[in-house]
Protein backbone atom coordinates (compact mmCIF):
# COMPACT_ATOMS: atom_id res chain seq x y z
CA UNK A 1 0.00 0.00 0.00
CA UNK A 2 1.01 3.60 -0.58
CA UNK A 3 0.25 5.55 2.57
CA UNK A 4 0.56 9.31 2.96
CA UNK A 5 0.71 10.34 6.60
CA UNK A 6 0.46 13.89 7.83
CA UNK A 7 1.54 14.57 11.38
CA UNK A 8 0.79 17.87 13.07
CA UNK A 9 3.49 19.64 15.02
CA UNK A 10 1.95 19.09 18.46
CA UNK A 11 1.57 15.35 17.97
CA UNK A 12 5.06 15.20 16.56
CA UNK A 13 6.80 17.02 19.37
CA UNK A 14 4.98 15.18 22.15
CA UNK A 15 4.91 11.66 20.62
CA UNK A 16 7.80 11.55 18.15
CA UNK A 17 9.18 8.28 19.52
CA UNK A 18 5.92 6.32 19.06
CA UNK A 19 5.26 7.83 15.65
CA UNK A 20 8.65 6.99 14.19
CA UNK A 21 8.63 3.52 15.80
CA UNK A 22 5.29 2.78 14.13
CA UNK A 23 6.46 4.18 10.79
CA UNK A 24 9.72 2.22 10.89
CA UNK A 25 7.75 -0.96 11.51
CA UNK A 26 5.20 -0.23 8.77
CA UNK A 27 7.97 0.66 6.31
CA UNK A 28 8.93 -3.01 6.14
CA UNK A 29 5.70 -3.71 4.22
CA UNK A 30 4.25 -0.42 3.02
CA UNK A 31 5.41 2.56 0.98
CA UNK A 32 5.30 5.62 3.18
CA UNK A 33 5.36 9.36 2.69
CA UNK A 34 5.29 11.46 5.86
CA UNK A 35 4.37 15.15 5.65
CA UNK A 36 5.05 17.01 8.85
CA UNK A 37 3.73 20.22 10.34
CA UNK A 38 5.44 22.09 13.12
CA UNK A 39 3.90 25.54 13.30
CA UNK A 40 4.37 25.74 17.08
CA UNK A 41 8.09 25.02 16.77
CA UNK A 42 8.40 27.74 14.12
CA UNK A 43 6.55 30.09 16.48
CA UNK A 44 8.95 29.24 19.29
CA UNK A 45 12.03 29.88 17.15
CA UNK A 46 10.52 33.04 15.65
CA UNK A 47 10.07 34.46 19.15
CA UNK A 48 13.60 33.43 20.13
CA UNK A 49 14.76 35.49 17.15
CA UNK A 50 12.61 38.45 18.13
CA UNK A 51 9.95 37.94 15.46
CA UNK A 52 6.38 37.86 16.77
CA UNK A 53 4.29 35.46 14.65
CA UNK A 54 1.21 36.89 12.97
CA UNK A 55 -1.70 34.46 13.26
CA UNK A 56 -4.77 35.56 11.30
CA UNK A 57 -8.25 34.26 10.54
CA UNK A 58 -9.36 33.88 6.93
CA UNK A 59 -12.78 34.96 5.67
CA UNK A 60 -14.13 31.42 6.12
CA UNK A 61 -12.79 31.18 9.65
CA UNK A 62 -9.56 29.23 9.09
CA UNK A 63 -6.66 30.30 11.34
CA UNK A 64 -3.43 30.69 9.43
CA UNK A 65 0.09 31.99 9.87
CA UNK A 66 0.77 35.20 7.99
CA UNK A 67 4.24 34.72 6.57
CA UNK A 68 6.29 37.79 5.76
CA UNK A 69 9.84 37.65 4.45
CA UNK A 70 11.65 37.37 7.76
CA UNK A 71 9.23 34.80 9.12
CA UNK A 72 9.69 32.76 5.94
CA UNK A 73 13.40 32.53 6.72
CA UNK A 74 12.68 31.05 10.14
CA UNK A 75 10.01 28.78 8.68
CA UNK A 76 12.46 27.28 6.18
CA UNK A 77 15.24 26.90 8.78
CA UNK A 78 12.99 25.10 11.25
CA UNK A 79 10.85 23.03 8.90
CA UNK A 80 13.41 21.89 6.33
CA UNK A 81 16.26 21.91 8.85
CA UNK A 82 15.70 21.05 12.47
CA UNK A 83 12.33 19.26 12.36
CA UNK A 84 12.76 17.39 9.10
CA UNK A 85 16.22 16.11 10.02
CA UNK A 86 15.16 15.09 13.53
CA UNK A 87 12.44 12.88 12.03
CA UNK A 88 14.73 11.45 9.36
CA UNK A 89 17.50 10.63 11.82
CA UNK A 90 15.02 9.05 14.26
CA UNK A 91 13.62 6.84 11.48
CA UNK A 92 17.07 5.87 10.24
CA UNK A 93 18.17 5.01 13.77
CA UNK A 94 15.32 2.46 13.88
CA UNK A 95 16.46 0.83 10.65
CA UNK A 96 14.14 2.53 8.17
CA UNK A 97 15.71 4.10 5.09
CA UNK A 98 14.39 7.63 5.33
CA UNK A 99 15.17 10.63 3.21
CA UNK A 100 14.08 14.17 4.04
CA UNK A 101 13.03 16.69 1.42
CA UNK A 102 11.09 19.89 1.20
CA UNK A 103 8.78 20.74 -1.67
CA UNK A 104 11.65 22.72 -3.17
CA UNK A 105 13.88 19.66 -3.68
CA UNK A 106 13.41 18.22 -7.14
CA UNK A 107 10.57 20.74 -7.57
CA UNK A 108 8.51 18.32 -5.54
CA UNK A 109 5.76 20.85 -4.76
CA UNK A 110 5.06 23.78 -7.04
CA UNK A 111 2.64 26.36 -5.73
CA UNK A 112 0.89 29.46 -6.92
CA UNK A 113 1.77 32.32 -4.66
CA UNK A 114 -1.14 34.04 -3.03
CA UNK A 115 -1.09 37.71 -4.04
CA UNK A 116 -3.85 38.80 -1.71
CA UNK A 117 -5.92 37.18 1.02
CA UNK A 118 -9.15 38.16 2.75
CA UNK A 119 -8.93 38.11 6.52
CA UNK A 120 -11.26 38.85 9.40
CA UNK A 121 -9.39 41.70 11.07
CA UNK A 122 -9.18 42.57 14.77
CA UNK A 123 -12.45 44.54 14.48
CA UNK A 124 -14.26 41.52 13.04
CA UNK A 125 -14.43 43.04 9.56
CA UNK A 126 -13.38 41.45 6.27
CA UNK A 127 -10.31 43.06 4.77
CA UNK A 128 -7.98 42.33 1.83
CA UNK A 129 -4.26 42.30 2.64
CA UNK A 130 -1.14 41.29 0.66
CA UNK A 131 -0.78 37.50 0.57
CA UNK A 132 2.70 37.18 2.02
CA UNK A 133 4.79 34.09 1.31
CA UNK A 134 2.08 31.47 1.19
CA UNK A 135 0.60 29.59 -1.68
CA UNK A 136 -1.59 26.83 -2.98
CA UNK A 137 -0.04 23.65 -4.34
CA UNK A 138 -0.61 23.32 -8.09
CA UNK A 139 1.63 20.39 -8.99
CA UNK A 140 3.46 17.47 -7.40
CA UNK A 141 6.56 15.78 -8.83
CA UNK A 142 5.17 12.30 -8.39
CA UNK A 143 8.04 10.81 -10.38
CA UNK A 144 10.47 11.83 -7.64
CA UNK A 145 8.31 10.35 -4.89
CA UNK A 146 7.64 7.16 -6.82
CA UNK A 147 11.37 6.77 -7.47
CA UNK A 148 12.17 7.15 -3.78
CA UNK A 149 9.42 4.93 -2.39
CA UNK A 150 10.10 2.41 -5.17
CA UNK A 151 13.68 2.18 -3.93
CA UNK A 152 12.43 1.52 -0.41
CA UNK A 153 12.84 4.95 1.11
CA UNK A 154 10.44 6.56 3.54
CA UNK A 155 10.01 10.11 2.22
CA UNK A 156 9.75 12.82 4.87
CA UNK A 157 8.39 16.06 3.43
CA UNK A 158 8.66 19.54 4.97
CA UNK A 159 5.74 21.84 3.98
CA UNK A 160 7.63 24.28 1.81
CA UNK A 161 6.87 24.78 -1.87
CA UNK A 162 8.21 27.11 -4.50
CA UNK A 163 6.51 29.19 -7.14
CA UNK A 164 7.45 29.44 -10.82
CA UNK A 165 10.05 32.11 -10.01
CA UNK A 166 11.79 29.97 -7.40
CA UNK A 167 10.35 31.88 -4.44
CA UNK A 168 9.94 29.62 -1.43
CA UNK A 169 6.46 29.52 0.10
CA UNK A 170 4.96 28.35 3.36
CA UNK A 171 2.25 25.86 2.52
CA UNK A 172 -0.29 24.18 4.72
CA UNK A 173 0.95 20.67 5.57
CA UNK A 174 -2.59 19.27 5.36
CA UNK A 175 -2.84 20.66 1.85
CA UNK A 176 0.61 19.30 0.92
CA UNK A 177 -0.31 15.84 2.20
CA UNK A 178 -3.63 15.93 0.37
CA UNK A 179 -1.94 17.00 -2.88
CA UNK A 180 0.71 14.27 -2.63
CA UNK A 181 -1.87 11.60 -1.76
CA UNK A 182 -4.01 12.75 -4.71
CA UNK A 183 -1.08 12.75 -7.15
CA UNK A 184 -0.13 9.21 -6.13
CA UNK A 185 -3.74 7.96 -5.87
CA UNK A 186 -2.67 6.73 -2.45
CA UNK A 187 -4.42 3.87 -0.72
CA UNK A 188 -4.87 6.04 2.34
CA UNK A 189 -4.24 9.52 3.66
CA UNK A 190 -3.81 9.45 7.43
CA UNK A 191 -3.99 12.82 9.20
CA UNK A 192 -2.66 12.64 12.76
CA UNK A 193 -3.14 15.48 15.20
CA UNK A 194 -3.53 16.11 18.92
CA UNK A 195 -7.23 15.18 18.96
CA UNK A 196 -8.86 11.76 18.56
CA UNK A 197 -10.72 12.55 15.36
CA UNK A 198 -13.53 14.80 14.21
CA UNK A 199 -15.42 15.65 17.39
CA UNK A 200 -19.00 16.94 17.42
CA UNK A 201 -20.86 17.49 20.73
CA UNK A 202 -17.99 15.88 22.59
CA UNK A 203 -18.11 12.62 20.61
CA UNK A 204 -15.69 11.33 17.99
CA UNK A 205 -17.60 10.71 14.75
CA UNK A 206 -16.56 7.30 13.45
CA UNK A 207 -17.47 7.85 9.81
CA UNK A 208 -18.26 10.84 7.60
CA UNK A 209 -19.75 10.40 4.14
CA UNK A 210 -18.36 12.56 1.37
CA UNK A 211 -21.66 14.48 1.07
CA UNK A 212 -21.41 15.52 4.74
CA UNK A 213 -17.93 17.00 4.57
CA UNK A 214 -18.77 20.59 3.69
CA UNK A 215 -21.62 20.97 6.15
CA UNK A 216 -19.51 19.49 8.96
CA UNK A 217 -16.56 21.72 8.03
CA UNK A 218 -18.75 24.69 8.94
CA UNK A 219 -19.60 23.32 12.37
CA UNK A 220 -16.26 21.97 13.62
CA UNK A 221 -13.47 24.12 15.05
CA UNK A 222 -10.90 26.13 13.19
CA UNK A 223 -8.07 23.81 12.24
CA UNK A 224 -10.26 20.73 11.92
CA UNK A 225 -12.33 22.42 9.23
CA UNK A 226 -9.36 22.68 6.88
CA UNK A 227 -8.48 19.03 7.47
CA UNK A 228 -12.01 18.12 6.38
CA UNK A 229 -11.76 20.32 3.30
CA UNK A 230 -8.44 18.71 2.35
CA UNK A 231 -9.85 15.24 3.05
CA UNK A 232 -12.69 15.97 0.66
CA UNK A 233 -10.30 17.12 -2.07
CA UNK A 234 -8.18 13.98 -1.68
CA UNK A 235 -11.20 11.71 -1.95
CA UNK A 236 -12.39 13.51 -5.08
CA UNK A 237 -8.94 12.97 -6.60
CA UNK A 238 -8.99 9.22 -6.14
CA UNK A 239 -7.51 8.62 -2.69
CA UNK A 240 -9.33 5.57 -1.36
CA UNK A 241 -9.58 6.43 2.31
CA UNK A 242 -8.87 9.38 4.57
CA UNK A 243 -8.57 8.94 8.33
CA UNK A 244 -8.29 11.75 10.88
CA UNK A 245 -6.96 10.28 14.12
CA UNK A 246 -4.88 10.88 17.21
CA UNK A 247 -1.12 11.13 16.88
CA UNK A 248 -0.73 10.90 20.65
CA UNK A 249 -1.45 7.19 21.11
CA UNK A 250 0.77 4.12 20.80
CA UNK A 251 1.28 3.01 17.19
CA UNK A 252 -0.80 5.95 15.91
CA UNK A 253 -0.67 5.10 12.19
CA UNK A 254 -1.55 1.46 12.79
CA UNK A 255 -4.36 2.59 15.08
CA UNK A 256 -5.73 4.83 12.31
CA UNK A 257 -5.51 2.02 9.76
CA UNK A 258 -7.35 -0.31 12.14
CA UNK A 259 -10.40 1.87 12.69
CA UNK A 260 -9.20 4.49 15.15
CA UNK A 261 -10.33 8.08 14.70
CA UNK A 262 -12.71 9.28 11.99
CA UNK A 263 -12.88 7.59 8.60
CA UNK A 264 -13.93 9.89 5.80
CA UNK A 265 -15.37 8.68 2.53
CA UNK A 266 -18.06 6.41 1.19
CA UNK A 267 -15.99 3.25 0.61
Amino acid sequence: MVLVIKVGGRALTSNMREIVKDLASLAEEERLILVHGGGDVVTDYSRRMGIEPKIMVSASGVRFRYTDEEELEVFVMVMAGKLNKEIVSALNALGAQAVGVSGVDGSLLLAERKRRVIIIDERGRKRVIPGGYTGKVVSVNKHLIRTLIGAGYVVVVAPIAMDQHGTMLNIDADQAASAIASALSADALIMLSDVEGVIVDGEVIKRIGSEEILSLARSVGKGMNRKLIMAGEALKSGVRRVVIASGLVKRPVTNALNGGGTVIGDA
Binding site: V62, R116, V128, G135, K136, L169, D172
Partner: peptide, 11 residues
Protein backbone atom coordinates in the same frame (compact mmCIF):
# COMPACT_ATOMS: atom_id res chain seq x y z
CA UNK B 1 -15.25 45.70 -7.30
CA UNK B 2 -13.22 43.09 -5.42
CA UNK B 3 -11.13 40.78 -7.57
CA UNK B 4 -11.82 37.08 -7.28
CA UNK B 5 -9.74 36.00 -4.28
CA UNK B 6 -9.85 32.33 -3.47
CA UNK B 7 -8.81 31.17 -0.08
CA UNK B 8 -5.68 29.31 0.89
CA UNK B 9 -3.24 29.44 3.72
CA UNK B 10 0.13 28.27 4.93
CA UNK B 11 1.11 25.97 7.76
Amino acid sequence: PLDDIREDWGE
